[in-house]
Amino acid sequence: MAHHDDEFAEYFAAKRDSVRRTAYLLCGDWHRADDLAQTAFVSLHRRWRRIRDRTAVDAYLRKTLVRAAIDESRRPWRREQHTDEVPEPRGTDTGDALAERVSTREDLLAGLAKVPSKQRAVLVLRYFEGLDVSSVARALGCSEGNVKSQTARGLANLRAVLGEEVDTRGRAAG
């Protein structure tokens, strides 16, 4: 039993930060990201001793995380409330390039928050996690065709929200 707990603790320590970052990309809020990551790790811990194929642990954890994010987004108290007032952008004195990068990142995260949760999950897994279509389909428990259509719809929605072309190689083009 102690051996399994040690294995899990080691796995948790190695994956904690990357799972939390992925959760943040899925929900756009660090506190909710912590909750989602915790939910995924608790679920994994419950099944840890029964997992025979340790190479499938990452996929199981990713699938659990994405499903938790989608489930949370459907809860009525989690629905976002949009406002017409935009907060003043934060100034920075560390250089134009950093300010541009931060601005682009904030725009992208705000745009992702406005994309429906399943489309957002597909975009995060495809373009931030770098998974191929078949891996995303396995993670979400759907067909590859569904992943492709959700990707196309998600990119179209993200383009509409951002009001510009979205370069799927990882950059926003103006």
Results as ranks from 00 to 15, higher is better:
Gly28Trp: 00
Asp29Arg: 09
Trp30Ile: 06
Trp30Tyr: 09
Trp30Asp: 11
His31Asn: 13
Ala33Gly: 00
Ala33Asn: 08
Asp34His: 07
Asp35Val: 03
Asp35Asn: 08
Asp35Tyr: 02
Ala37Glu: 02
Thr39Trp: 03
Ala40Lys: 05
Ala40Gly: 06
Phe41Val: 02
Val42Leu: 15
Ser43Val: 02
Leu44Val: 03
Arg47Met: 06
Arg47Tyr: 01
Arg47Gly: 03
Trp48Tyr: 11
Trp48Pro: 00
Arg49Pro: 02
Arg50Asp: 10
Arg50Cys: 02
Ile51Arg: 11
Arg52Ile: 05
Arg52Gly: 14
Asp53Thr: 02
Val57Tyr: 11
Asp58His: 09
Ala59Cys: 02
Ala59Thr: 10
Ala59Tyr: 00
Tyr60His: 13
Tyr60Met: 13
Leu61Phe: 07
Arg62Val: 08
Arg62Thr: 15
Arg62Pro: 01
Lys63Leu: 03
Lys63Asp: 14
Val66Cys: 15
Ala68Val: 02
Ala68Trp: 00
Ile70Trp: 01
Asp71Ser: 11
Asp71Ile: 03
Glu72Pro: 01
Glu72Asp: 15
Ser73Asp: 14
Arg74Ser: 10
Arg74Val: 03
Arg75Asp: 08
Arg75Val: 08
Trp77Ile: 04
Trp77Arg: 10
Trp77His: 13
Trp77Asn: 05
Arg78Pro: 02
Arg78His: 14
Glu80Val: 09
Glu80Cys: 03
Glu80Trp: 07
Gln81Lys: 10
Gln81Phe: 02
His82Tyr: 14
His82Thr: 07
Thr83Leu: 13
Asp84Tyr: 11
Asp84Gly: 13
Asp84Asn: 08
Val86Asp: 08
Pro87Asp: 11
Pro87Glu: 12
Pro89Phe: 09
Arg90Thr: 11
Arg90Tyr: 04
Gly91Glu: 13
Asp93Pro: 01
Thr94Pro: 00
Gly95Gln: 12
Gly95Val: 08
Ala97Val: 14
Ala99Asn: 07
Ala99Ile: 03
Glu100Asn: 06
Arg101His: 08
Val102His: 05
Thr104Val: 13
Thr104Gly: 01
Thr104Glu: 14
Thr104Cys: 03
Thr104Arg: 15
Arg105Trp: 13
Arg105Tyr: 15
Glu106Val: 07
Asp107Arg: 15
Leu109Pro: 00
Ala110Thr: 12
Leu112Gly: 04
Lys114Thr: 06
Val115Cys: 03
Val115Met: 06
Ser117Tyr: 05
Ser117Lys: 05
Lys118Thr: 13
Gln119Asn: 13
Leu123Pro: 05
Leu125Glu: 12
Gly130His: 11
Gly130Ser: 09
Gly130Ile: 01
Leu131Gln: 13
Leu131Met: 15
Asp132Trp: 04
Val133Asp: 12
Val133Glu: 13
Ser135Ala: 15
Ala139Gly: 04
Gly141Gln: 01
Gly141Asn: 10
Cys142Asp: 04
Ser143Gln: 09
Glu144Ala: 10
Gly145Asn: 14
Asn146Lys: 07
Val147Lys: 01
Val147Pro: 04
Val147Met: 02
Lys148Thr: 10
Ser149Asn: 12
Ser149Trp: 00
Gln150Val: 00
Arg153Pro: 03
Gly154Ala: 06
Leu155Asp: 05
Ala156Val: 02
Leu162Ile: 04
Gly163Gln: 05
Gly163Phe: 04
Glu164Leu: 05
Val166Met: 06
Asp167Met: 05
Thr168Lys: 10
Thr168Asn: 06
